[in-house]
Design a protein around this nucleic acid. Structure first.
Lengths: 123, 123
DNA sequence: CCCTATGTTCAATGTTTATTGAACAATTGA
DNA sequence: TCAATTGTTCAATAAACATTGAACATAGGG
């Protein structure tokens, strides 16, 4: 309850909060991976990011991403699916999200953007 | 000396540091005013921002803006002139600075972007 | 040479932040 | 019903941050 108060409407989304959210390497990686996925499924499970940090730390970052308006969560059974609020962001700050994602892509190696990506387990 | 160690080369400029810099309302206002000025003189005196905060707090923010690669300072007598490192930013992260500035312009009233602008003194 | 103006540096303060592990809640499947 | 899975909440910690005022440095004008 202390971590779920906000969830801004489109108009309530604030530029400084969005930039601050994107300035954290873990959150930037989350947003980046969601953006990559956008053409395919537009959603990822929380667990898909486990490579980036511990679960409780990720929950903290997810909350921040939701509070600033970048992400939305859909509950499905014991899973949560996250997606970018792409339309709201583009309406509110045209070109911003794309510019950030392209900038991140340029530095994909420097930033460890794909650290959390599907590790294939050899059973 | 403790406050002037970095001054990244173009290649050393890091996306998270830039976004973090821009996420602070005072620094965003500084960058915004410099961007507005760009067509005219491309430079502003430190003192032109005195409306945004106290001098020592501004010096702190100026240092951050320099350290992340967004700004450059030119000393001229007892004054310091600041300008955006526009070419470096555009080369490094194409479209990013413009997207941020346009986004800030959209919210110019909400963010207090022009708070530090030339107050005309009577007398 | 002093006095003023301009900025920076430093130390101190209180706030916010990221990170950790343990506890908790909810759902699923045996 | 029991156990396993998924993810959130909570408390604690250390680090980073923004802000303030005082001290300092430098340059320029009388």
């Amino acid at each position: 309850m202390s971590r779920t108060p906000l969830h801004p409407t489109r108009e309530q989304i604030e530029l400084p909060m969005v930039l601050d959210c994107l300035s954290d390497p873990i959150r930037l990686a989350i947003v980046y991976q969601l953006a990559q996925q956008e053409r395919v499924s537009s959603e990822l499970r929380c667990g898909d990011f486990n490579g980036l940090s511990g679960k409780s730390n990720l929950a903290y970052h997810f909350a921040k991403l939701r509070e600033c308006g970048l992400m939305q969560t859909r509950v499905a059974g014991t899973n949560r699916f996250m997606r970018l609020r792409r339309e709201d962001m583009d309406a509110r700050f045209p070109g911003l999200l794309d510019a950030v994602i392209k900038s991140a892509a340029k530095d994909a190696d420097r930033l460890q953007l794909m650290a959390g990506c599907e590790v294939v387990e050899a059973d």
